[in-house]
Amino acid sequence: MSFIKEFKVFAVRGNVVDLAIAVIIGGAFGRIVTSLVNDIIMPPIGLLIGGVDFKDLMFVLREAYLDPSGVEINAVTINYGNFIQFIIDFLIIAFVIFLAIRAMSRLQKKEEAKPVIPPAPSREEKLLEEIRDLLKNR
């Protein structure tokens, strides 16, 4: 099989399309959670700990300065506030995914636990059963 044909078979496979949809939805969900953390959760937490914006939390390794030619050299910092926000983002996303998978598992268990009710016999089957019973009684 040629490389292009093999790629075409791979690309139109259902799993690849499902994965692409999941990545797109996951990206959108990630942006929603980031907004939730940055815009709703972190401001009150920052207020509770003294009006600190987590984005401003950093450890300065070297201050910004002007070199002899007058070009500004940026400060070198470790931005641990951003890191804390990303950890909170991750925990919220992981928790929501856990809840979704847990709910799906419970639904699957409920579907498996339901007894399968056999379909009612058709009109022809009922008629054949009556004929069988009449022949037995002869």
Rank of each mutant, 00 (worst) to 15 (best):
G26V: 06
V23T: 14
K114I: 03
A94L: 11
R31W: 14
E63P: 02
S105W: 02
S105K: 09
I73A: 05
F10E: 06
D56M: 11
E129T: 15
D67C: 01
K110M: 06
E130W: 05
V12T: 13
V17N: 09
F10D: 05
V52C: 01
E111K: 05
G51R: 07
I21F: 08
V76L: 15
G30N: 03
A20F: 11
V37K: 01
D133V: 08
L57R: 05
P44Y: 07
G51H: 04
R13C: 07
I41E: 01
K109M: 07
E63G: 00
P44D: 04
S122V: 01
I21L: 13
N82L: 15
V76G: 03
G46K: 04
E129I: 14
M58Q: 14
I117H: 05
A113S: 00
E111T: 05
I93Y: 01
L19D: 12
I73D: 02
A75V: 10
E112F: 02
A28M: 12
V37R: 02
A75R: 09
R106P: 05
R102C: 10
L57N: 00
K55H: 15
A94T: 08
A20Y: 03
A120K: 12
F95S: 10
G14T: 10
A20T: 15
A28L: 14
S69G: 08
I45V: 14
L99E: 09
D18S: 14
L47C: 08
I41A: 04
V33Y: 00
E72C: 05
E112P: 02
R123I: 14
L128D: 15
R62A: 13
I49Q: 04
E72F: 11
P121Y: 02
G26C: 06
T77E: 01
S2R: 08
N79W: 05
R102G: 12
I32P: 01
G46F: 10
I93E: 02
N38M: 11
S105A: 10
F86I: 15
P119K: 08
E112T: 08
E72T: 12
L57M: 14
K136T: 12
G51E: 06
Y80P: 00
D56Y: 10
I24G: 04
I84R: 00
L128S: 12
R62V: 14
F95D: 06
E129P: 05
N74H: 13
E112S: 07
F59E: 00
I45A: 03
Q85E: 15
D39W: 06
F83S: 11
G51A: 03
L61E: 06
G30Y: 01
F59N: 02
I117W: 06
D18F: 11
D133I: 03
I93R: 01
D56C: 04
N137S: 14
